[in-house]
Design a protein around this nucleic acid. Structure first.
Lengths: 345, 345
DNA sequence: TAAGCTAATGATATCCATTATATATTGACG
DNA sequence: CGTCAATATATAATGGATATCATTAGCTTA
């Protein structure tokens, strides 16, 4: 359908119609600074217009060995930090004139590797990789794939050290520290933690920040206050009751999704946030500000990440041999309505 | 960087290394049913493996005139119905083995047209179009672009009638009816409406459903209860007070985003939902269920839309001449915590 | 007026993979 | 032993655009 009576005009058609050669047409249409008479230029442009000619990007990509497309490899798109990041990177790269090809690894290392290949084969000029959370076994797999990759890869949120490709990292230790310090400043002494998987580096870093803050305030670290799970709502729901049993007055949820689980469960037990318990989240996804009460949370610097990614991509596409420094971005605490001073302080 | 010492292996490299011709290599690697000796097959496959050969999709696309990629044109990605839809379509198409190229029109007709061209030029096999909200002036522009488009275009949520390309629509009249009927059943008599732009067809349809329900219950339509704005939070915020002045006991927000604006504003005035006022939203975006109270809303059948899109695409790619029927999907009311019976009923 | 230069344009290889067609090799059989 | 069929592999066209180099025409200048 549709195409039967209408075929896309190619440069050849423009050449035939205008009476000039393909080469001349290409030169004119690309505004190459070569001496071609104005009448010729105009004629060719008019023909291109009439035929509604638009260069075929596949052909362009083949000949220029560049496709103006950037690949984006993400663990998932479940309304988390990743989808925020995806959106921001998408905006930034679109603004910079790139197309985007997005794919999800389902947090599976093998799929990540596969996707790196896929991206290359699709002719993307560069790829942004937020890798799956992995165990140490997989590191060399990634390093190998990244080093062998013929296009620049920007690593976000995770750095494989034996690679030359640059990374954009967020300081998770600081994030954990900020969240905890805020609660300590508010006078909370027993602060429960609902964490993601204990073997994720980001998770460990946030907990490290938590401990740093505690020790700064001379509060002993109590292992019983730390619960591991996933970065999801269910983990928040199922963990709340046992933390309440530990008599905590505040909870540091290591993701906003976990915090929502806490919200939901608290609602069930008729526990008021922040009156009965303070909650701090992590990520500052879109709707955190819309919750009731609005969630106090550690905001990922998504705009800066996106900006940094774009900068690195454009730099690398200009000169693929530059060695870009890894970047370390800082999260920001957003104090909203889910935390309050410890009663009596 | 990266690429200097490592170049992507091409089919030529495999041919050279294995000692066979390019053609033979291609035949083997694509498992074409031609008579080629097993020893040759194995040798070639081994070489391809060693060189980590993967066919270049651009070249493949050029020669096969197909790229296994689908274009997705959306108005925006601002955490609305569109981003839900985008996510679902993405999942479904990925599962079906397609890559996806996403672009946003910023709700601008001209950009839509441009993006249709872009998609074609990027070599996508088919495109899914959720067009910008347009005035009647633009209709022929779209019809023209769609009819001239050499690839199948699936229209979602909006149908340009003078085109042969199929559409997947959602019954907005029914949606508006369901929301309103629910409130009427709960005994609410004065139901305010906070709508999006009055010239959007979807918006008008939802209001039509609203009026249908009213007349079914023999309630006179009161123009003063209808407020137009955008489908965003700000519209919800700024409209609430004047509706309260009209003494409404329930509000039908024509998008969930509007409903959140109402939530926020109600919170400021210490108005309790649903005790003081009932609220129904529209779209059922991800976090509606997470709100406090969870939002009663009309759910878009995103999964069914995605499914239908995929079916149409695969059908059209198989035989581009089939004439597919337009599909009409129905929204579903999700009754949650933001509505209650009118006091005294 | 012929040599030399420049401006304008054209011919063609190239990118990589597919594939229709062509050629070469082998084996069977009369 | 020659011929034909079947098997195995190669050649070359194709797709759309770019880039390099070649060519032509027209003009200047000695």
């Amino acid at each position: 359908m549709l195409g039967e009576d209408y075929m896309r005009a190619t440069i050849k058609d423009v050449a035939k119609r205008s009476g000039f050669s393909i080469a001349t047409v290409s030169l004119v249409l690309n505004n190459r600074p070569v001496s071609i008479s104005d009448t010729t230029r105009e004629k060719i442009k008019a023909c291109a217009e009439e035929l509604n000619y638009r260069p075929n990007r596949l052909a362009y990509g083949m000949s220029k060995n560049n496709s103006n497309t950037i690949g984006l490899i993400l663990p998932n798109n479940q309304n988390t930090y990743f989808s925020e990041l995806s959106k921001t990177i998408h905006e930034a790269t679109s603004k910079a004139g790139f197309n985007i090809l997005v794919s999800y690894s389902d947090n599976t290392p093998d799929k990540d590797i596969e996707l790196i290949h896929l991206m290359v084969n699709c002719g993307v000029d560069a790829a942004v990789l937020i890798s799956a959370n992995i165990s140490t076994d997989h590191i060399s797999l990634y390093e190998n794939a990244i080093n062998k990759c013929p296009i620049p890869i920007i690593q976000v949120d995770r750095k494989f050290s034996n690679t030359k490709s640059p990374s954009v990292m967020v300081d998770n230790v600081l994030g954990g520290y900020l969240a905890t310090k805020h609660l300590l400043d508010y006078g909370h002494l027993r602060i429960g933690c609902i964490a993601g998987p204990g073997n994720y580096p980001g998770c460990r870093s946030r907990l490290k920040g938590y401990r740093q803050a505690l020790s700064e305030y001379n509060i002993e670290y109590d292992e019983r206050l730390i619960h591991f799970g996933k970065y999801d709502i269910e983990t928040g729901r199922s963990t709340l009751s046992s933390l309440l049993g530990q008599n905590v007055s505040a909870i540091f949820a290591l993701s906003d999704m976990i915090a929502y689980g806490v919200y939901k469960e608290a609602c069930l037990y008729n526990i008021k946030i922040p009156d009965d318990i303070s909650v701090v989240g992590y990520d500052d996804v879109f709707f955190s500000d819309l919750e009731n009460p609005p969630l106090t949370t550690v905001a990922q610097p998504v705009r800066f990440i996106a900006l940094s990614v774009i900068n690195k991509i454009t730099a690398l596409l200009e000169d693929s041999s530059v060695l870009l420094p890894d970047e370390f971005l800082v999260p920001v605490l957003k104090v909203r309505g889910s935390t309050r001073k410890y009663p009596g302080k």
